[in-house]
């Protein structure tokens, strides 16, 4: 069929995914970069109602997997951290097509929106005709671009816990402002109550082969008052310096490691540590 498959409802899409010859396509901005000798049969997800748009539940912001980056930017529901990261994706034409779910499914540690999902502890709703499951996004990445997604499964939506969305720090380092793949990216969350650190999360993109987070290191400062945390600042940075072992990439390991630590230091400074 020339036009491919154009389901409008999730159950139709999942039924079609049972055929191993079918390739799910949300925005196409990654899949279409390569060309193949034999024709690929695409299942187009852009009209699947259950996978589109943003909505709120009491505890979560829910982003449909086939929601484009532009739709995130235009949504009053999207938190500033997500908007900031998404606004740095490629260019308007790519943001009009590319989707949050595709950014995750692609498995790249450079994916700009996936960095945000990692730092806020987002959970993926994954479904197939066999059933559905919830998976923390951190567990989705198996390393080396491998992801925990069976050939008949689709990421349906991404749930971001509202309690984790702010206050935030974000920085992407690219070769230029637009159309740049991250050389390194960093997102941090920092929440304090009455001078005591209640929550701290730090995620690094494009350093290791999956987005890097270390909850054990994060917990070094949690529960401390700011002056105590300040005393531990150098130890904290040194611990990250030992833990961050960059993979080989287009940009040198030394550069990426020092930028990562500089951003981590700046993150602490911004929040008074």
């Amino acid at each position: 069929m020339v036009s491919g498959l154009h389901p409008r409802r999730l159950n139709e899409a999942l039924a079609a995914m049972a055929d191993p010859g079918v390739i799910a396509l949300a925005g196409g901005t990654d899949l279409m970069v390569g060309e193949t000798e034999t024709e690929r049969r695409f299942l187009y997800l852009h009209n699947v109602r259950e996978m589109r748009g943003l909505r709120e539940t009491p505890d979560h912001l829910v982003v449909g997997a086939a929601t484009t980056f532009t739709e995130v930017l235009e949504s009053p529901l999207a938190p500033p951290l997500l908007k900031e990261a998404v606004s740095g994706v490629a260019s308007p034409a790519v943001r009009n097509a590319g989707t949050v779910g595709g950014n995750v499914a692609n498995g790249s540690p450079k994916a700009d929106s996936a960095l945000v999902l990692m730092v806020v502890d987002a959970v993926l709703l994954i479904a197939s005709a066999r059933g559905e499951r919830l998976l923390p996004v951190a567990d989705f990445y198996l390393g080396g671009k491998k992801v925990d997604l069976a050939s008949d499964e689709l990421i349906v939506e991404i749930r971001l816990p509202k309690s984790r969305l702010a206050p935030h720090y974000y920085c992407k380092v690219g070769g230029r402002r637009a159309l740049a793949i991250s050389r390194l990216s960093f997102a941090g969350l920092f929440r304090q109550e009455r001078g005591r650190i209640r929550h701290l999360a730090a995620a690094f993109g494009a350093v290791t082969d999956v987005i890097f987070r270390d909850r054990c290191l994060e917990s070094m400062l949690v529960g401390l008052e700011i002056p105590e945390a300040k005393k531990l600042r150098q130890d904290f940075l040194a611990a990250y310096g030992a833990a961050l072992v960059p993979t080989s990439g287009r940009v040198s390991k030394e550069y990426r490691r020092s930028v990562a630590l500089n951003l981590l230091g700046d993150f602490l400074t911004v929040f008074g540590v």
Partner: peptide, 24 residues
């Protein structure tokens, strides 16, 4: 999708036509 020379308007949005499969 890096240069924009193939940009067209698809359903009221600018897209790079090199990254859009015809079936879409």
């Amino acid at each position: 999708g890096e240069c924009g020379a193939c940009a067209v308007i698809f359903n009221d949005r600018l897209v790079n036509s090199c990254l859009v499969p015809a079936g879409m």
